[in-house]
Amino acid sequence: MSVGKYIKDVWGAVRSLGRGMKRTLYYFTHHKEIITQQYPDNRETLNLPERFKGEVVMPHDEKNEHRCTGCQACELACPNGTIKVVTRFDMIDGKKKKAIDKLVYHLELCTMCNLCIEACPSDAIKMAQTFEHSVFDRNKLTKILNNPGSKIMDGVE
């Protein structure tokens, strides 16, 4: 290693360290712009980032209809068995048609990986931004996503 390169190395190190320290000093002296949220205090005005994922939900419209066809793509996509699709066969116009009876979702197993949402061909499920999930009974974490008596939306295959 030549002496010139050695000195250049040292100089470059000092300069880049100085740049880092300047940045932190800037933050230190401008401590009014705070990025953390004072959670329990600002519960009403909570500002969650767009991509925050809290739990899987199945949206229903006002006629209590959902878009799930019972294809089980989400169940296959799930890496740790969080979703269990229980299907039944409805008789519609004399033909057997597959439909969901229950879509069981184990929140306690879910890692919020978003794979089920990406696998769903009919956009029946999506991620909600709720996060206050603590309950006293573990059974309450096993949820049935479709509402009782709901049925599939017309036109969704």
Binding site: T24, Y27, H31, I35, T36, Q38
Partner: peptide, 10 residues
């Protein structure tokens, strides 16, 4: 406090 202010926290 120093660490918090340097990391834009409270």
């Amino acid at each position: 406090k120093v660490s918090a202010w340097m990391q834009i926290r409270l």
